[in-house]
Design a protein around this nucleic acid. Structure first.
Lengths: 116, 116
DNA sequence: AGCATATGCAACGTTTATGTTGCACGATTT
DNA sequence: AAATCGTGCAACATAAACGTTGCATATGCT
């Protein structure tokens, strides 16, 4: 099954920020953590961290759960898998295109649609 | 070698847009194409496409070359590889964390830093 | 009850993204 | 040389992203 392009972009966008990437790393290395915990060490405020976590949650990269007065976030690996599959797909297609291009260069029988 | 987090975010950010993702797909499927070619079919102007291509170029996902009066863009697979490796890395760490967590749950010897 | 902790929410301000339009310029074609 | 094609560049407009501050609210601890 080919990956849905419509769902891939938002996931990548969520990954496209150092702060959020840092949060994911932390969650992947230390397991579920509260907002305050995740805010420690960062240079931005807790509120800013909350927004980043919400951004990650919106695309399903993390899940949250209330634990008493704490909201604990955890990584959700499924989405990560989707992103990976997308890159694999593009990479594979690229390889195929490269192979086609090579074949094209080696034989003068040019298929009309091929670029260059 | 672990991937550099500082270089990963911009790449993901560049991937985080449907238009750009579409351009990459097109390039991966059809090989090198000119700006005008890549603009056909899209709903945005050529100038907008140019900017998207520049954004992809800035992070090294595509390369460009002048061919007469055309500027031809092509995908650069190396960066794609970097992004993939990053996701692999995070996923692997997540798996490791899950394993640790499982081990932790099974033995009551709690390391102090562990969340929850 | 009283206090500290963990968050949420809303109002702002600033910066960055994204897209458009209009026009200039060099390369190709006729 | 003239017309056409493929681009670049600059000025603008709008919207979204990101971060802050200030204050309200609920939970947990003493």
């Amino acid at each position: 099954m080919s990956p849905k392009r419509s769902s891939a972009a938002p996931v990548f966008a969520a990954l496209g920020d150092d702060t959020r990437l840092g949060l994911l790393r932390r969650l992947s290395a230390e397991g579920p953590l509260s907002i305050t915990r995740l805010s420690e060490g960062k240079r931005v405020t807790r509120q800013a961290i909350t927004r980043h976590l919400d951004a990650l949650g919106r695309v399903g990269l993390v899940r949250d759960e209330w634990r008493g007065r704490e909201r604990v976030f955890a990584l959700d690996a499924k989405r990560l898998e989707i992103a990976r599959q997308y890159l694999d797909h593009v990479a594979a297609q690229w390889d195929a295109a490269a192979a086609r291009l090579k074949a094209f260069v080696e034989s003068p029988k040019a298929p009309k649609g091929t670029a260059l």
